[in-house]
Design a protein around this nucleic acid. Structure first.
Lengths: 191, 191
DNA sequence: TGAAAATGGGACATGAATGTGTCATTCTTC
DNA sequence: GAAGAATGACACATTCATGTCCCATTTTCA
């Protein structure tokens, strides 16, 4: 039981476990709690103290990742003057913290029915943003908006992969992704 | 024991199992053999007759998917006159049979050490193709070639997802992907 | 039609992951 | 330095996927 507010120690342990789980489950949903505990550098006992059941960790992770996503979203849109600028800033922001977020999209159907799942809302917001950019004339209207959102996410994923593999710094990978998006979805192009 | 050549019945059962496993494992590597048997509409007993151990199914699937990939590759490059045309034709071809192939790239590290793994060769070939297209002047040389290959695969993945969800016909999704690639990686663009 | 092939269904043992609990040890904090 | 918090290291039961049989039934093909 927590005394009053969780101590700094507990916060750090909790975060280590969440981050380890996010990174592991992004690649392999069947990663065992024992492996996650190892990655977090805690014992399996400790992991179970923080998250009594596997489902408790899943739920906490879901909430944490979506909170992070919305925080990034707010920051990125606040600093933007146009829809396409918002999209590009969001891409960069997500690429920065991809380790905590990617697992959300590795297989969304996995969380279907989970009352904590609300990332669809973010995707809906992104679709709205793309539609606004299409109305703007800054994004190709010939390509389906939902499809375009899929491209946005997958470009971010490629950037995150490239950064994680150590082949290039994260900011450079993000720049490539944004650049490809901007050019690839540009409306003015000879047939 | 097989009499002489596998009967047509066995071929169809075997294919149903391989396809079910490829589709299931592309999304969730922890899908049980029981679930795969259900998807393939065979009993778990039958599945075990064809693939005594889980590993046997993994190996067979690995070989089957890579054979498919190389077949597509050969056909696509044979019908192409330039590197970029080859790349685009391969994208379309892979999108067609994505269900059998995508699982290869869902987490390649999973197959590290497996003697049957050779998809890296295909990726290497793709890198060569991109480099040729860059030398051509048809693909942006400012973006890392390996990163570009990642984009190619992920665009195909997005197309396959869109088609699988039923939001659009497969050929249209593939067209979007190719279009995004062509424009997104185009070299001539104002800064 | 009859034999062989192929499949379905179930029983059973095994191993890995999970969940629970206890106790000793280490770390914080006053 | 002492009390409480936090952790690590086990032990144990339970559940589930896996692998191995066996036998009845259906399907295929000569």
């Amino acid at each position: 039981m927590t005394t009053q507010v969780d101590s700094g120690v507990r916060q750090r342990t909790r975060r280590a476990i969440l981050d380890a789980a996010a990174a592991a489950w992004a690649r392999d949903w069947s990663t065992s709690l024992g492996d996650i505990a190892d990655r977090a550098e805690v014992s399996r006992s400790t992991l179970h103290r923080y998250f009594p059941e596997r489902q408790a960790l899943v739920d906490a992770l879901l909430i944490d990742a979506q909170d992070t996503l919305e925080r990034l979203w707010t920051g990125a849109t606040a600093a933007s003057g146009s829809p396409i600028e918002s999209i590009e800033n969001i891409m960069i922001a997500i690429a920065e913290e991809a380790n905590r977020i990617v697992f959300l999209f590795s297989d969304p159907s996995r969380f279907a029915g989970n009352p904590n799942w609300r990332a669809d809302d973010d995707t809906d917001d992104m679709v709205d943003l793309v539609r606004a950019a299409q109305a703007d004339g800054t994004v190709d209207s010939d390509i389906d908006a939902e499809f375009t959102v899929g491209i946005v996410y997958s470009l971010v994923y490629v950037a995150a992969e490239a950064a994680a593999s150590g082949r290039m710094p994260r900011h450079k990978a993000a720049e490539y992704a944004v650049r490809t998006f901007r050019h690839g979805l540009s409306p003015r192009h000879h047939a």
